[in-house]
Design a protein around this nucleic acid. Structure first.
Lengths: 216, 216
DNA sequence: TATCTTGCCTAACGATCGTTAGGTAGTTTT
DNA sequence: AAAACTACCTAACGATCGTTAGGCAAGATA
């Protein structure tokens, strides 16, 4: 659909433009887009604010490039895994694991993929919302496949997809490279929890799903 | 610890101050704190910007009150459920369900509990971070109880707690009253997914937990 | 050598920000 | 009836915002 958006045009590594992108990713992610001024970015790069406009025509142009970069990573590395021929559970686990790895690898801009893109305006915002919707739909569809085949419980597919993606999307809040588990181990945990839950299957089973249970 | 922070001093319902809080909750949640100006708030209430200062001494004072209100709801309605005498799995399910219900009931300020509090400064920010940490720790501890008793799999307790809270914290992004499921049903889904996972237990079992599985 | 381009600079524009000073009409308290 | 308080107002302050105009030195190109 919006595939032309996803063709990479990354600046040369080590160039001043790449430095600007890196600093923007970090500051937008830490403080938020609205709370990061062009003067903040300039200071981080030891430049004058006006000089930034030699590389980008506006603050929103920077956000747009960062947001697209991150969307590219998710689309290119996760979505192809939806199409393998294995059972839905295996494919979903692989997708979740790849999703987690992208989040960790793109730590600084993952927050932008989830949050800060809302500061885009007009057509860009609509295009980006479509990219995100397309991405989420891949998870919804594979869950529906699994429900149809009987491999998954007949839960609400949208709610399930949002729940498992959300559980991954918070990683950038607490992940610390070196101190936390490896990206692969975290991916395995998240995938396992989404598919098998926290409960130990060898313990006495309980009824699944949901009626009420003693609400105040 | 910071219990005095959690004593409610809510303004009378229907008062102008309550209107201001409601408008602030909605706008801070929709656009973010930094992108909402005092003039925006004034316009939403059909007032002049300066008049807001008859009710609050600063913009941050408004954020602080909203953030505390929301923290109160979580602490008062969820944490007591951690202390019942039932098995960890049952208590955790009840806590998650209550957590979801608070998120939905406090839809407009839940985003502030999770995100916008970072715009608090100095001592307030530290106090609020402590409140959130205290809240999360209750989930971590009950998971550790369940692991010790053998009811839960021996997964990382912090990671598990963050993952299940996160899966709930995204609800405010898509929940639409009337159109979505009831808060109770969503709470049951989230709790069931966290404990039992998506996979149907009557289907052929797979190994749980986490080693690697054929990464590219 | 002459011209063009690149990447930075100084200076400043107009808009918008949170906030304050000072006033006024209506209500409540003394 | 006098005083005090409440909830709003007009006007404006200084700071900061994204951005632009115009210049200048160094390297690339002709």
């Amino acid at each position: 659909m919006a595939d032309t958006l996803l063709v990479s045009v990354a600046p040369a590594p080590g160039s001043r433009k790449a430095d600007l992108l890196a600093a923007s990713r970090r500051l937008f992610s830490e403080r938020g887009y609205a709370s990061t001024s062009m003067r903040d970015l300039a200071e981080a790069l030891d430049m004058r604010p006006a000089s930034l406009y030699s590389h980008y025509r506006s603050k929103e142009d920077i956000l747009w490039e960062i947001a697209l970069d991150c969307a590219r990573a998710f689309h290119h590395r996760v979505l192809p895994l939806a199409e393998a021929g294995s059972p839905p559970g295996d494919r979903l686990a692989a997708m979740l694991k790849a999703h987690v790895e992208v989040i960790i690898e793109w730590r600084d801009s993952a927050a932008i993929f989830f949050r800060e893109w809302k500061h885009l305006e007009g057509q860009r915002r609509e295009q980006y919302a479509a990219l995100i919707h397309e991405y989420e739909t891949a998870f919804v569809q594979i869950i529906e496949e699994g429900i149809t085949s009987g491999e998954f419980q007949p839960l609400d597919s949208h709610l399930s997809a949002y729940a498992m993606l959300s559980s991954a999307n918070w990683i950038h809040r607490w992940y610390q490279p070196g101190k936390s588990l490896s990206p692969e181990a975290i991916g395995d945990y998240i995938a396992s929890m989404a598919l098998n839950g926290l409960r130990n299957d060898t313990a006495p089973l309980r009824e699944a799903g949901g009626e009420h249970e003693g609400k105040a």
